[in-house]
Amino acid sequence: MTMHRSSDALIAELVGGLEPVRPLRFGEGLGLALAAAGLSAVVVITLFGLRPDWLAGSVNPMHLVATGLYFGLALAATVTVVVMSRPQIGSDHTGWRWAAAMAALLPLAGLIVGLSGGEDMLSAENVRHGAACFAVGGTASLLVFAMLTVWLRRGAPTDPDRAGLVAGVAAGAFGIFAFSLHCPDNDIVHIGVWHSAVVLVMAGLGRAVLPRLIRW
């Protein structure tokens, strides 16, 4: 951008156009993301139903651990995105990585079990069921993805590439968390491969698409 006016003229122009603004609050950003995630979960349960074991009152431990890890990752990534929207020298944007490292145990364990020959990962039935989870989980991510995009556009992220990536992780993890409330499959191979794929693909989408939308 090339400027030709004096700074005084620019300041006068900016002062003339001043309107009151509502500062971006951390709690508001986090609350909106959680509301979007909650709404996505309600829609998934309304459309597809809650897992049968929840209804029966006895919950599978594998399901609980996996769903909890995705929720933890989603929460940590969302907090990071909200922090990134409000620039500040000295801010730390790395907290989500620890949650990601913990959640990475799921695909790792899934791949180890799957490749060690316990079952046929690529059977038509497994792929069909996995692809359905992937598609619905991905779709369930979109509301959080859109909400975080709007929030980042209101804010001033100084590292748009990373903000896009982390927003994608948050959206994907919330999306698959929502769908996990329906998906009755407790198999680590299915969860590790297909559920984690939602997080990975949404992270890639966020990294590829968001920077150009949130750059300022």
């Binding site: 400027m3 300041i11 001033a156």
Partner: peptide, 22 residues
Amino acid sequence: DDLVQETLIALHTKRASWDATR
């Protein structure tokens, strides 16, 4: 001059991203 003015414009457009508690 250009850089100072660009930054003032950024301050203006992104002024909601500052929180008075910080």
